[in-house]
Each structure stands twice: as structure tokens, then as C-alpha cells.
């Protein structure tokens, strides 16, 4: 990435990855996977889900200084489980339930159920996102062309 990333601890890097998966998840798929977790722990809201805008920046010439391109919708919330873990949910779009699910998963990933949640929520989300990405890349690959330059007549 362009900006020199501050070096993250392995825990921070792992959390960065799963929060990214949750942010880009399909709301219905996430709801299904979270719903299949059985009894979910009680929690208190630290910040109820709120819809807002994030100003997306681009770089001039693709690699230069930043400029403001336009906003995107993002929904965020924060909660604390009865067992103490604090979860933050950030998801693209305007789905408050999806943000709540994301925050719950973020909190659960910091507790004793982390391995189970990774297997039953994060891994399926990652597989779905990889499948979509690979399918598009495969269709793009089929449209790859080789142009040949023709020699022009001399007249």
C-alpha cells in the first residue's frame, strides 16, 4: 500500500483481516452464519448502529497526491459482551443488522470461541468472496486480446 503501514502486531493484523472480510460480506450470508452459532452472548451497546458517509480518496495520476473522489455509505457500531470483549462493526452500505453481526463476530474472535467462529463464519465468508473474485477474473481472462499491427500501404 502507498502509505508506509505502521507495523502491526500479529493480533492486530489478524483483526484487520477479519474486519475487512466482515465489512465486505454479503449481509444475508453473514446473518445466516451468525444465526447458526447457537446462543449468542448478551451484550451492551457502546455505540448503536449508525449510518454515515466515508469520503473515498483517490490519487492523482494513480500514484500521486490524494484528492477527494466521493463518499460511500458505511454503517458502524460498537458493543461489549457480558464477558468483557469489545467488538466494532464496520460494514459497507446501510444495513444496521449486518453491522451488529460484524461487531458480534469481532468480539467473539477475541474470546474463547475464536477458533469455532473462524471455522464457521470467517472461513465461509472468505471462500464466498474469493469465489466471486475468481469468477470475474476468469471471465476477464477470456476477453484478453492480442492486437496485431497491420502494415499500411505505401500509396
Amino acid at each position: 500500500m502507498g502509505k508506509p503501514q505502521r507495523s502491526l502486531t500479529p493480533e492486530q493484523a489478524a483483526r484487520q483481516t477479519w474486519m475487512g472480510l466482515l465489512a465486505k460480506s454479503d449481509a444475508a450470508q453473514l446473518a445466516g452464519l451468525v444465526g447458526a452459532q447457537g446462543a449468542l452472548p448478551a451484550f451492551d451497546w457502546l455505540r448503536r448502529p449508525e449510518i454515515g458517509g466515508v469520503m473515498v480518496r483517490g490519487r492523482m495520476g494513480g500514484s500521486g497526491a490524494p484528492f477527494n473522489l466521493g463518499e460511500m455509505t458505511v454503517t458502524r457500531c460498537s458493543l461489549r459482551l457480558a464477558t468483557g470483549e469489545v467488538g466494532h462493526g464496520y460494514v459497507q452500505g446501510r444495513d444496521k443488522v449486518q453491522a451488529e453481526h460484524a461487531a458480534l463476530v469481532d468480539a467473539l474472535m477475541q474470546g474463547p470461541r475464536a477458533d469455532e467462529v473462524r471455522d464457521t463464519v470467517l472461513d465461509p465468508l472468505e471462500a464466498a468472496q474469493t469465489e466471486i473474485r475468481t469468477a470475474r477474473a476468469a471471465k476477464a481472462a477470456a476477453t484478453k486480446v492480442d492486437f496485431f499491427t497491420m502494415v499500411r500501404g505505401e500509396d
Binding site: 502507498g2 454515515g52 458517509g53 466515508v54 473515498v56 480518496r57 483517490g58 492486437f147
Partner: peptide, 27 residues
């Protein structure tokens, strides 16, 4: 009407998963 949550890091378009990519200058 949207509260501004923040701004993004500049998007890095060289990491783009390209559906389309053409150049009129280099074949």
C-alpha cells in the same frame, strides 16, 4: 444528511481486480 464517519486512505488502483484494462499506446 449523512454524518461523515471519516475519510479513506487513498485507494491504490494498481491493486485493482481488473474486469477491463486496455491501452491505446502499447499493444
Amino acid at each position: 444528511t449523512l454524518p461523515r464517519i471519516g475519510h479513506s486512505e487513498p485507494v491504490e488502483t494498481d491493486t485493482m481486480a481488473c474486469d477491463r484494462r486496455v491501452s491505446a499506446t502499447f499493444k
